[in-house]
Amino acid sequence: MTLAAGGIVAVALGVLSVSAASPANVTDAGGAAQAGAEATTQVSPPPPTAVKTGRPAPVRADYAGRVKEQGGLIAISVRNDKVIAYFCDGRTEAWFAGRAKDGEVTLKGFGGSSVSARLDGDRAVGGLRIGRKSWDFTAPTAKKPSGLYRASAIVRGARLKAGWIVLADGTQTGFAKRGEQPVAVPALTPGTDPTIDGARVDAKDVDEFIGEMP
């Protein structure tokens, strides 16, 4: 899967970020590419807030699913009370971090972007906001090899960063950049080291990098 360049916002690895490039692809299990949909939802209304359930948040859980009416994917991972999330549609990515409490999470990203969700055991249900646009999502429990992956390396003097979301049916999307420049990112085979911009990188699953997140 090849994603074209044209980034608009980026921050260093380990810092919550929103980055963009154009065009976008989400690749399904059969290898067909679907163009990432342009946002068509209402501008300005906030995403649904998580409803307090009175249940404790899971100590360890992973969720991955589709963002409704947008075409991208979202992944959420919980380790104790620490939670991270990643949104990607192939041209835009955003990282989020926060805490879990009372069965709900509220996560913050760059530039006021946010994720809020309630964790209902076998799924996370909530809303995503990036800039002035917002969408709903439902993300079922993700079992390895599906889930969230990330890579980071120094390539020809610049930091290369990449992220992927892999769904249970094989659908996946990813985004990569070297320095501030988006670069083509290959489809990920979990458990292997992909080559990006001429360099082989270590694609870590969430257990290997969640401790590095803020």
Rank of each mutant, 00 (worst) to 15 (best):
A57M: 15
V59Q: 14
R60W: 09
R60D: 14
Y63C: 01
A64G: 11
R66H: 13
R66P: 10
V67A: 10
K68C: 04
E69C: 07
Q70F: 15
G72Q: 09
G72M: 13
L73T: 13
I74H: 06
I76E: 00
S77T: 10
V78E: 06
R79I: 07
R79Y: 03
N80I: 05
D81E: 09
D81Q: 10
V83T: 05
I84K: 01
Y86K: 07
Y86R: 13
C88S: 15
D89H: 11
G90Q: 11
G90W: 04
A94E: 15
W95D: 14
A97V: 12
G98K: 05
R99C: 01
A100R: 01
K101R: 07
K101V: 01
D102Q: 10
E104P: 00
E104W: 00
L107E: 07
L107D: 02
G109H: 04
G109L: 09
G109V: 05
F110W: 13
G112E: 15
G112W: 09
G112M: 14
S113I: 07
S113M: 12
S114L: 15
S114Q: 13
S114R: 14
S114P: 08
S116N: 06
R118I: 00
L119W: 02
L119T: 00
G121L: 05
G126R: 06
G127A: 08
G127C: 03
R129G: 14
I130H: 08
R132Y: 12
R132I: 14
R132A: 15
K133N: 13
S134D: 12
W135Q: 15
W135K: 12
T138S: 09
T138E: 12
A139H: 06
A139E: 01
T141E: 06
T141M: 07
A142I: 11
K143M: 07
K143A: 15
L148I: 05
L148A: 11
Y149N: 01
R150L: 08
A151G: 12
S152R: 02
I154T: 14
G157H: 08
A158L: 06
R159C: 00
R159F: 00
L160Y: 02
L160N: 04
G163N: 02
G163E: 03
W164F: 02
I165W: 00
I165P: 04
I165K: 04
V166Y: 05
L167M: 10
L167Q: 11
A168P: 04
G170T: 02
Q172F: 03
F175V: 12
F175L: 15
A176M: 10
R178W: 03
E180D: 13
E180T: 13
Q181I: 03
P182Y: 02
V183M: 00
V183I: 11
V185K: 02
T189D: 03
T189F: 05
T189L: 11
P190D: 14
G191E: 12
G191K: 07
